[in-house]
C-alpha cells in the first residue's frame, strides 16, 4: 500500500514540466469529442423535417449576402496579385501565354476555396460564436428549450445549412472576380484582350480543376457553422465567455479547414490522377 502511494507520487512529480502540455492535448481531445457529438446531432436533425426555412433564409442573408463585398475585394486582389507575382517567372520560362490558365487553376483549385473559407471562418465563425454565446449567456437558449422550440434545430441547423450553401456560392463568385482581377492586370501589363483571356482559360481549365475546389467548400462551410455554433452553444462564464467563444470559433475552424484541405487535396489527386 505504502509503496503504491510512493510510486504514484513519483509519477506525479516527475513529468511536472510536461503535464500542462498533456493537459492541453487532453482538453483538445475532449473538445474534438464534443464537437463530433455536436456534428452528429446535425445528421439526426437532418432526418427530422420540417426545417425552419424562414430562419435559413434569414441566416443566408446574414452569412452570405453580408459577406459579398468582402469576398469580391478578396477575390479581385487574389487574381491581380497572383498575376503580378507570377509574370516575371513565367516570362523567364517563356511561358507568359500560360499566365491566365495558371492563375485560373491556382485560384480555382486552392487559393479561392481556402482563402475565402479561412477569411469567412474569421468573419462568420466568430460572428456565430458570439451570437450564440450571448444567447447562451442571456438564457435565450434555455428559454427556447422551455418554449419547446428545439434550439439545435432553430439555431444550429439553420446556421450550418446557411454556411454550407453560402460558402460554395461565395467561392464561385470569388473565382469569377479573381479572373477579372487577373485580366485587368494582364490588360494593363501586356494588353491582352478579354476574348483571348477567356479562350485561354476555357481551353486550359478542366472540370477536375473546378469542381473539387467548389465541392470542398461545402465541407468548409459545414466546419465554420458547426464550430461557431458549438463554441457559442457551450459558451460559459457570461459576457466574458462570449468573447472567448468568438475567438475560439475563428481559431478552431480556420485550423480545421487547413487540416481538412490536406485531406481533400489527397482525395482529389486520387480521384483525378494526372
Amino acid at each position: 500500500m505504502a509503496e503504491n502511494e510512493l510510486s504514484s507520487e513519483a509519477v506525479q512529480a516527475s513529468p511536472e514540466a510536461e503535464s500542462p502540455m498533456v493537459a492541453r492535448w487532453a482538453s483538445s481531445l475532449v473538445l474534438l469529442g464534443g464537437l463530433w457529438m455536436f456534428a452528429m446531432q446535425f445528421v439526426r436533425t437532418l432526418a427530422r423535417p420540417p426545417y425552419e426555412f424562414k430562419e435559413i433564409v434569414r441566416q443566408l442573408n446574414a452569412i452570405g449576402y453580408r459577406s459579398l463585398s468582402l469576398v469580391i475585394v478578396v477575390g479581385i486582389v487574389i487574381g491581380a496579385v497572383l498575376t503580378m507575382q507570377s509574370r516575371p517567372t513565367m516570362i523567364k520560362f517563356g511561358a507568359q501565354a500560360y499566365i491566365p490558365v495558371m492563375v485560373a487553376i491556382s485560384v480555382m483549385r486552392e487559393l479561392s476555396p481556402v482563402l475565402i473559407s479561412v477569411i469567412l471562418a474569421g468573419r462568420v465563425g466568430a460572428g456565430i460564436g458570439a451570437e450564440l454565446g450571448s444567447m447562451r449567456a442571456s438564457e435565450q437558449i434555455d428559454a427556447m428549450d422551455v418554449a419547446a422550440l428545439d434550439p439545435y434545430k432553430y439555431l444550429v441547423f439553420t446556421r450550418v445549412v446557411a454556411c454550407m450553401i453560402a460558402l460554395p456560392v461565395l467561392t464561385i463568385l470569388a473565382d469569377f472576380v479573381a479572373l477579372i482581377g487577373s485580366w485587368i492586370v494582364e490588360k494593363l501589363d501586356a494588353g491582352i484582350s478579354i476574348s483571348y483571356f477567356i479562350h485561354s482559360v476555357v481551353d486550359g481549365v478542366e472540370f477536375s480543376d473546378y469542381l473539387p475546389g467548389v465541392a470542398k467548400t461545402i465541407f468548409f462551410g459545414f466546419t465554420i457553422g458547426i464550430v461557431g455554433c458549438f463554441e457559442g452553444y457551450n459558451s460559459k462564464g457570461g459576457t466574458e465567455g462570449v468573447g472567448r467563444s468568438a475567438t475560439d470559433a475563428a481559431v478552431t475552424s480556420s485550423l480545421l479547414i487547413i487540416l481538412l484541405d490536406v485531406l481533400f487535396v489527397k482525395v482529389t489527386l486520387m480521384l483525378w490522377p494526372t
Binding site: S138, E139, Q140, D142, A143, V146, A147, A148
Partner: peptide
C-alpha cells in the same frame, strides 16, 4: 419534458426574450 414545460411558466433572471 415538452408537455411538462407547457404546464410550468418560467421567468428567466434576464427575461431571455428572443432578440430577433
Amino acid at each position: 419534458l415538452m408537455s411538462l414545460r407547457s404546464e410550468i411558466g418560467f421567468l428567466f433572471q434576464g427575461a431571455a426574450l428572443f432578440d430577433s
